[in-house]
Nucleic acid binder design. Structure first.
Length: 262
DNA sequence: ATGTCCACCGGAGGTGGA
């Protein structure tokens, strides 16, 4: 079963690119972030024509996440628990019913957190604490699950081409990295690092200053796996070539292959 | 030397967000 995640940076602007990639990659499940659309305006039909069931949790103008699955959904839940006041559309979790069994998959768009001297950084860290608490609860079930998305965290220096340039940025602040480590220390597996030890594997290249051409990238899109999912991890790859397409997102898809019959 | 892009509002380009 192939599960992918991709910050598409606007579904309206990216519809052709997204459809082209889905046709090429043929994931069973795709997690999208930054759809920048309300649910009513999400162009679900072209995705349905490719055989996907579509679930969205959007808001006007920015943020917004979506789940696409070739298998039917069961108990889809929007919003990360822990703050009833949080109106930002950043989390959608669904249980997928595949012939071989069920798997829980979340699409998440973790707050950027910049500038760090603003309330945005506190919001990011609070959101990460809520995510840890929620993951802790999911782990009690001892079932396969995947937390996939744009974490807006550079976990280690080797996850940036120029780590020094990110010193002080919310994506690389010790507090953000520590919160990401805390998540992993619950017993979750960073799929890319489980499959590839070497550096120079990035998922984001800024639109500015020729970052893609210079390979000035960072790794901020991650799939964290429960032990029951990690046991079945066969592969994890980054579709970097998509960054070189016409009208690209600044992020590229990253996917895993799990050893379960799709 | 940010050298960019997206969406909103409103009906041209400024603004917020990344």
């Amino acid at each position: 079963m192939k599960i992918a995640t991709w910050n598409i940076n606007g579904v309206k602007a990216r519809i052709d690119t997204a459809l082209a990639w889905l046709k090429e990659a043929e994931p069973d499940v795709a997690c999208f972030q930054e759809i920048k659309s309300i649910d009513e305006n999400f162009p679900a039909e072209p995705f349905r024509e490719l055989g996907y069931n579509v679930e969205t949790h959007g808001q006007k103008g920015f943020n917004g996440v979506a789940l696409l699955s070739k298998h039917p959904f069961d108990e889809v839940t929007a919003r990360l628990p822990g703050d009833a006041e949080d109106e930002q559309a950043r989390y959608l979790e669904g249980v997928i019913c595949a012939p071989c069994g069920t798997i829980r998959i979340a699409t998440l768009y973790l707050p950027n957190g910049n500038p760090v001297d603003s309330p945005k950084f506190g919001y990011k860290l609070a959101w990460m604490e809520r995510l840890e608490k929620h993951a802790r609860k999911l782990l009690e079930e001892e079932e396969p699950f995947v937390l996939a998305g744009d974490y807006n965290v550079i976990p280690e220096p080797e996850d940036a081409r120029h780590p020094d340039a990110w010193a002080g940025d919310a994506l690389f602040r010790p507090e953000s990295r520590s919160a990401f480590r805390a998540l992993k220390n619950l017993g979750l597996t960073d799929a890319l690092r489980a499959c590839h030890g070497e550096s120079d594997r990035y998922t984001f290249w800024d639109y500015q200053a020729g970052a893609w051409q210079k390979n000035n990238g960072i790794r901020i899109d991650h799939l964290l796996l429960s032990p029951q999912a990690a046991d079945r991890l066969r592969a994890c790859e980054i579709d970097s070539h998509v960054r070189g397409w016409e009208k690209p997102s600044d992020h590229v898809p990253i996917w895993i292959d799990l050893d379960v019959e799709a």
